[in-house]
Amino acid sequence: SEHYTFDGEEQAIRFMRDMEAKNLKYELQIHNGKYIIQVD
């Protein structure tokens, strides 16, 4: 699995939509205002 970190919500949402379009599962965590997305 890989981790991707985003500072902004818009970037994170765009990335998650992209993952959904590719049928990839992901998990979102928010730490200290950063959006951390783990992709299986």
Rank of each mutant, 00 (worst) to 15 (best):
S1K: 13
S1T: 12
S1E: 08
E2N: 13
H3I: 15
H3Q: 13
H3R: 14
Y4R: 04
Y4M: 04
Y4D: 01
T5A: 08
T5H: 10
T5F: 11
F6H: 00
F6Q: 00
F6R: 00
D7R: 04
D7S: 09
D7F: 10
G8C: 15
G8I: 14
G8L: 15
G8M: 13
E9H: 09
E9V: 11
E9N: 04
E10T: 06
E10S: 07
E10Q: 08
E10M: 07
E10C: 13
Q11F: 07
Q11L: 09
Q11V: 06
A12G: 02
A12S: 02
A12D: 00
A12H: 01
I13C: 10
I13K: 10
R14E: 12
R14A: 14
R14G: 07
R14M: 12
R14L: 11
F15T: 01
F15L: 03
M16F: 02
R17L: 12
D18S: 10
D18R: 10
D18A: 12
M19Y: 03
E20F: 06
E20V: 06
A21L: 11
A21H: 07
K22D: 04
K22T: 04
K22A: 10
K22M: 12
K22Q: 11
K22P: 02
N23L: 07
N23P: 02
N23E: 06
K25M: 07
K25T: 10
K25S: 09
Y26I: 07
Y26P: 05
E27V: 14
E27Y: 13
L28A: 04
L28W: 10
L28T: 04
Q29V: 13
Q29M: 12
Q29R: 13
I30W: 05
I30D: 02
I30Y: 10
I30F: 09
H31Y: 11
H31D: 09
N32W: 05
N32G: 10
N32D: 11
N32C: 12
G33H: 05
G33S: 04
G33C: 03
K34H: 09
Y35C: 01
Y35E: 00
I36M: 07
I36E: 05
I37S: 00
I37G: 01
Q38G: 05
Q38W: 15
Q38E: 09
V39G: 03
V39N: 02
D40F: 15
D40Q: 14
